[in-house]
Design a protein around this nucleic acid. Structure first.
Lengths: 236, 236
DNA sequence: ATGTGATTTGTACTATCGTACAAAAGATCA
DNA sequence: TGATCTTTTGTACGATAGTACAAATCACAT
């Protein structure tokens, strides 16, 4: 009864379930959750609306399954890379490797689970912006461990920076990462075509470089209060 | 003690039109465009659904009006601050002032037009993530001038950095800024309560400090290619 | 107080939403 | 083959969406 047809799968129609998941992922990632209807997804997957209900019960269930499929592999890949990064001896190089371990899996392109990091990360960005409840629960209980591990690793490379500052800066990193995946065309536009915002390799290098520098900035507590007079101040 | 303000605006019911705009702004900014219905907005504003149609014709028209109201004041404030920042003589200080001129107006809190920067910026972040068409048009034709002026100003303080790199880094800045407004609770959570992600002053200081450092990072072209062997590389 | 133009209300229309469910089709094995 | 289970299809239902529009109400000059 619980027999799993792992070898042959469904042969004639190449796995409708996967097609629905892929279509939903793409549509959610580009249009948000509420703008996409179950019928849109079914049509994009070449399936029947009822088929979505059969496989995932509800629209929320479909989103939940998208998260379930990706969280494991992505966090695994991140911890592998993080472990490798921690073995780098030079402190400066180690920091860069740690940042890279966080950034690279989020940008990998492709259609399979291991490679579809960019699409899934973009999905997370959009769900985060929409304040999606399903996503919020999953995120908090699945990604916070990874985030803490990352923050700790950065902290080890920069022991003189307060942990609070590192949290802020890693938060900025995630925001920059999200935004780069959400509106890559803006980079192309503002650079007047000199840069390609859709090029993952460029985005990674630029983001890593900028983020490492941001992490290495002096701590706020000791730098900010005794600086020169504020040149620009809020009006109220 | 309240003297009846005899003007064209309705006095007894304090400007329903404004109430609708404010309610829509708040709801859109926290839930996205598609998740909020006209009836939700009307109810939050204490108005009738038909009243929304009367004042703004369509739901898109309502969103459009929100943008129209804010773009002017916010860009004005930014160019004032930018002009002031450009007069700073010390290069390092000027860069910080320029970044501050970009960041501060986006974080100002309050309910009026001049002060409601945070809410409106969060709205822009969410619309951007959802790929909203109305927002996309407005943004490209209204904010690109400001963005270019900002990029140029940063470039003046850092002439040795290629413009392309500055574009990327200012893109990261906007992403970080957006994300800080969208999920401030994440900062509180990851810092285990040591930082308050909702505190605008902290967010501004942290963001300015980190961004200035990111801008000052060495240029990519000369730094990246001849570095040590890649410690972490993509699998494919 | 009364007429007039600007608002607000109430309601209704159509379209589309998520989901349920029975019937059809396909697959698997005795 | 026929029996049985899984998957897909087609359709329908109640809820809610955006919007239109006539009637009611309000503010205010006359």
């Amino acid at each position: 009864m619980v027999r799993k047809p792992t070898s042959k799968e469904t042969a004639r129609k190449p796995n409708m379930r996967e097609a629905i998941l892929a279509a939903a992922e793409e549509l959610f990632a580009t249009n948000g959750f509420n703008a996409v209807s179950v019928r849109d997804i079914a049509q994009a997957a070449g399936a029947n609306p009822g088929s979505v209900t059969y496989h995932f019960k509800t629209k929320d269930g479909l989103l939940l399954e998208i998260y379930r499929r990706h969280c494991g592999p992505m966090n695994l890949r991140r911890s592998e890379l993080l472990a490798a990064a921690k073995r780098v001896r030079d402190l400066q190089d180690r920091l860069e490797a740690v940042v890279r371990a966080y950034v690279v899996p989020a940008f990998t392109s492709g259609s399979d689970l291991a490679g579809g990091g960019a699409r899934f990360t973009r999905l997370r960005a959009v769900m985060s912006a929409e304040g999606n409840e399903v996503a919020r629960k999953i995120i908090a209980q699945t990604f916070d461990d990874t985030s803490h591990a990352f923050i700790d690793a950065v902290h080890e490379s920069l022991p003189h920076i307060p942990r609070t500052d590192i949290v802020w800066r890693s938060h900025f990193l995630l925001g920059a990462l999200y935004y780069s995946l959400v509106t890559p065309d803006r980079v192309s536009r503002l650079s007047r075509g000199e840069a390609d915002g859709s090029d993952a390799a460029s985005a990674i290098e630029q983001l890593v470089q900028a983020t490492v520098a941001a992490f290495q900035a002096p701590a706020l507590d000791q730098a900010a209060p005794v600086r020169r007079r504020p040149v620009v101040s809020s009006k109220t």
